[in-house]
């Protein structure tokens, strides 16, 4: 167990973080190079004011027409994404590991709250799964990759939840948890999870076009 755990939490985690940061950097720089090479005009339309105006509307629940039209989805997707990002970053056990390895630490969530947030992520993932399977307009455009990325995202939380409660084979679950977290990190830049990286850019461009050229709201 020592060997396996040390492997997943050591070299594998290094690789995952390298792929995540390196990959994210590569994808964004690559995009900017491509814009510069083939669609340079995009830069001339970009506007900080209209980009931020658009982004702010879309990152606030119910601030856009479509969020208001889909109240259930809006509540769930915001809760899901907030918990998805905040839980791993502010989880006590994770911060303790950062402290032990690099002597850096920051504010942490109470474990009970983190537990609830994990459940929110898992329930959110289940909601998205059900939505994919049951809503015709979603099902129609769903491919295998959609289930794969949903699984990639849900896995660290399911295993983390089981590990925290020490259900089933704890040491094994714990190792799977680390593995699942690493897979998710590494997958972000190279799958459609990259919407985490690109959505601010696509939003900003559409916001700039609507604000600067079209004089209309894009929300």
């Amino acid at each position: 167990m020592h060997t396996f755990y040390n492997f997943v939490s050591g070299p594998l985690t290094w690789i995952a973080f390298l792929l995540f940061f390196g990959g994210s950097f590569y994808r964004i720089v690559n995009m900017l190079f491509l814009v510069n090479k083939k669609e340079k005009f995009i830069f001339s339309y970009m506007s900080w004011r209209y980009s931020l105006r658009s982004i702010f509307h879309w990152i606030i629940p119910f601030a856009t027409t479509n969020w208001r039209r889909q109240p259930v989805l809006t509540v769930i997707t915001f809760a899901f994404h907030i918990c998805l990002m905040a839980t791993p970053i502010f989880l006590l056990s994770h911060v303790i590991l950062w402290d032990e390895s690099f002597s850096i630490s920051w504010w942490t969530l109470p474990d009970v709250l983190a537990d609830v947030m994990t459940i929110v992520v898992i329930l959110g993932a289940i909601y998205f799964l059900v939505r994919r399977l049951s809503q015709p307009e979603v099902k129609y455009v769903t491919s295998a990759s959609d289930y794969v990325i949903l699984t990639i995202v849900a896995a660290p939380f399911v295993t983390g939840f089981l590990a925290y409660h020490q259900w089933f084979a704890y040491p094994l679950i714990m190792c799977l948890h680390v593995l699942a977290g690493n897979i998710m990190l590494a997958a972000i830049p190279f799958t459609r999870l990259s919407h985490m990286l690109f959505s601010p850019f696509t939003r900003a461009y559409m916001g700039s076009e609507f604000g600067g050229v079209r004089n209309a709201r894009d929300w």
Binding site: M31, Q135, E137, F198, T202
Partner: peptide, 12 residues
């Protein structure tokens, strides 16, 4: 490229 890679197939 980015539009196709970013679409999360949500149907919204």
């Amino acid at each position: 490229k980015i539009y196709v890679d970013t679409c999360i197939h949500c149907g919204l």
